[in-house]
C-alpha cells in the first residue's frame, strides 16, 4: 500500500426499514482527490455523504477515515440548499464552524470576512441571507465549508438550482480554492458535464439498491480550464459516462417493470 487513503469505504450497505438503499459500496480516496458520484434519483447518493460525515451509520461494511478526518471541522458539508441561518449575516454564517470549534467570536469573524472576500462576497459580509441571490447564498455556503480548511468537503448537488453560467463560474472558483489547499471533494451531482469537469474520478451508481456500476478516471486532472468544456476529449468522456448512466437507468426500469 503506497499511501494511506484519506477515506475508504468497504462493502458499505444501508437499509431504511425494509428498503435496501445501498449495497456493497466500495471506493477509496487519496488526499486532494475529487470524486463525483452520479446516478439515478433515489439511488442513495445523499446517504453515502451522510455516512461519510458521520450523520448516519452503515448497516454493513465499514467506513475507514484517516485520523486527519476525525477532528472537529475536518469534514465540510455543502447541502442541496445553501442552508444558511436566516437570522445571521453572511459573515456570521461563515464564522459558525470556527465558533463551534471554540474560536473567539472576533477572530472567527475576521477569518470569515477574509474567506468571503476570496469568494468575491467581501461587500456582502453584513447582508442577511434573504438579501442574497441563489448563487451568492451558495458562495456563502461554500465559504462556510472552506473556513475550517478541511481535508474533505462533501457536496450534495450544491449547484443544481443555479443557472448554467453561475454554475460554471462557481465550479471554477471552487476548483481553484480546493486545488490550492489540497482539499478532497466528494461531489454528488445529476449533471454528467459537471461531474466530468470537476473530477479526477467519476463513479456511476446503479438504481436502488445503489452500488458502483462503473468508475471513470478523467484524463485532465488538475488542468481544468473553462475551454475544456468545448474540447473533443471532454465530449468523448461525457458520452462514455452518459452511456453508463443510461445503462444504470435502464436497469432500474427493468427492475421496476418486473
Amino acid at each position: 500500500m503506497a499511501e494511506r487513503a484519506l477515506l475508504r469505504l468497504v462493502r458499505v450497505g444501508k437499509s431504511f426499514a425494509e428498503r435496501v438503499v445501498l449495497r456493497d459500496i466500495s471506493f477509496r480516496m487519496q488526499q486532494g482527490e475529487i470524486l463525483s458520484l452520479i446516478g439515478p434519483s433515489g439511488c442513495g447518493k445523499t446517504t453515502i455523504l451522510r455516512m461519510i460525515a458521520g450523520l448516519a451509520n452503515p448497516d454493513t461494511g465499514t467506513i475507514e477515515r484517516n485520523h486527519a478526518l476525525n477532528e472537529k471541522g475536518r469534514i465540510g458539508y455543502v447541502f442541496q440548499d445553501a442552508t444558511l441561518m436566516p437570522w445571521a449575516s453572511a459573515e456570521a454564517n461563515v464564522a459558525l464552524p470556527l465558533i463551534l470549534q471554540g474560536l473567539p467570536s472576533k477572530e472567527a469573524h475576521q477569518h470569515a470576512n477574509a474567506m468571503l472576500a476570496k469568494l468575491e462576497l467581501g461587500d456582502f459580509a453584513c447582508a442577511a441571507p434573504h438579501e442574497l441571490s441563489g448563487g451568492m447564498k451558495m458562495r456563502v455556503a461554500l465559504a462556510r465549508a472552506l473556513i475550517t480548511n478541511p481535508s474533505l468537503i462533501l457536496l450534495d448537488e450544491p449547484f443544481a438550482a443555479l443557472d448554467e453560467m453561475t454554475r460554471h463560474a462557481l465550479n471554477d472558483e471552487m476548483l481553484k480554492l480546493v486545488r490550492a489547499r489540497g482539499t478532497s471533494l466528494v461531489f454528488v451531482t445529476h449533471s454528467v458535464a459537471e461531474a466530468a469537469y470537476l473530477s479526477d474520478r467519476v463513479a456511476v451508481l446503479s438504481h436502488r439498491p445503489g452500488h458502483v456500476m462503473a468508475e471513470f478516471k478523467m484524463p485532465w486532472s488538475c488542468e481544468q480550464t473553462p475551454a475544456l468544456r468545448y474540447e473533443k476529449r471532454f465530449t468523448e468522456e461525457t458520452a462514455r459516462i452518459s452511456a453508463a448512466l443510461g445503462r444504470a437507468m435502464d436497469d432500474g426500469n427493468l427492475v421496476g417493470a418486473a
Binding site: 450523520l55 458539508y77 442552508t83 463551534l100 470549534q101
Partner: peptide, 26 residues
C-alpha cells in the same frame, strides 16, 4: 429547527449548549 441546519451543527460537532443558543433558540 431546519433539519439540514441541525445536520450542519452535528457535522461540526456542536455541543448541547451551542445547539440551544445558536440554533434552537433563534
Amino acid at each position: 429547527v431546519d433539519p439540514a441546519l441541525s445536520d450542519l451543527f452535528a457535522v461540526y460537532g456542536a455541543n448541547a449548549t451551542q445547539r440551544l443558543w445558536r440554533l434552537e433558540a433563534p
